[in-house]
């Protein structure tokens, strides 16, 4: 494994830990999109079906997959629990979390139907999860634009996730050169995803670093 991939995976892991730590320590879910978190659970559950088939790739691979599935479900449960422990915060979240995810789900189904490695249930679900991951952050970004303010938790979380995506691109270049391997599907969806993050960071840079607060244009 090359350094870009290890750093990318660690950054992905870090983003999840930041999210869990903040929800638990502050007992607030303000600024976090429930829809994005449900989509990530769906992404991991549909992608890592090979775990259930006992297709062993490596110890690292198995541990990480189990962690991603378990932590994403845990986050959804934490957010649901706040319905009782912090009803005001929960209600506010529901009000601003209004992105229509049915389009993302339908679009990912369509993309999986047209672009896949083979027409088998596992390969189709794998492709679906790749396309869905590329857009799963949109409800979260949409929520930020609507509320017009970004809590530092959410920006740390999005930064760590964006870093993970960005690092996967040099990882693919590395793999192309050292292993002569190339996965058009994963790379195309990955580039789309990175572009979505870049767009967010560009706006964030313009609005926040240049000191105007985060009121994103809609």
């Amino acid at each position: 494994m090359n350094p870009f991939r290890i750093l990318g995976d660690l950054s992905h892991l870090g983003s999840i830990l930041i999210l869990i730590y903040t929800i638990r320590s502050t007992n607030t879910i303000e600024g976090i999109s429930f829809k994005t978190q449900v989509l990530y659970s769906l992404v991991f559950l549909t992608r890592y079906l090979d775990l259930a088939m006992f297709k062993f790739i490596s110890f690292y691979n198995t541990i990480m997959k189990v962690f991603f599935i378990a932590s994403s479900i845990y986050i959804v449960i934490l957010l649901q629990k706040s319905k009782k422990t912090n009803p005001i915060s929960y209600k506010e979240m529901l009000l601003t979390d209004s992105f229509k995810i049915q389009y993302l789900l339908l679009g990912s189904c369509g993309m999986a139907f047209f672009f896949h490695h083979s027409f088998t249930p596992i390969a189709l679900l794998w492709s679906f999860s790749i396309w869905l991951e590329s857009v799963a952050i949109l409800p979260q970004l949409f929520m930020l634009t609507k509320s017009g303010k970004a809590k530092s938790i959410t920006t740390h979380y999005i930064f760590a996730l964006g870093l993970y995506r960005a690092l996967y691109i040099p990882n693919w270049i590395w793999r192309y050169m050292s292993e002569s391997r190339f996965d058009k599907l994963a790379i195309s969806a990955g580039i789309i995803q990175t572009l979505i993050y870049s767009d967010f960071f560009y706006i964030y840079y313009k609005k926040v670093i240049k000191g105007k607060g985060l009121a994103l244009p809609t």
């Binding site: 991939r5 691979n61 793999r175 190339f182």
Partner: peptide, 10 residues
């Protein structure tokens, strides 16, 4: 160039 899917990635 091998075009096998990147199933080893996360």
């Amino acid at each position: 160039v091998s075009k096998l899917p990147f199933k080893d990635e996360l």
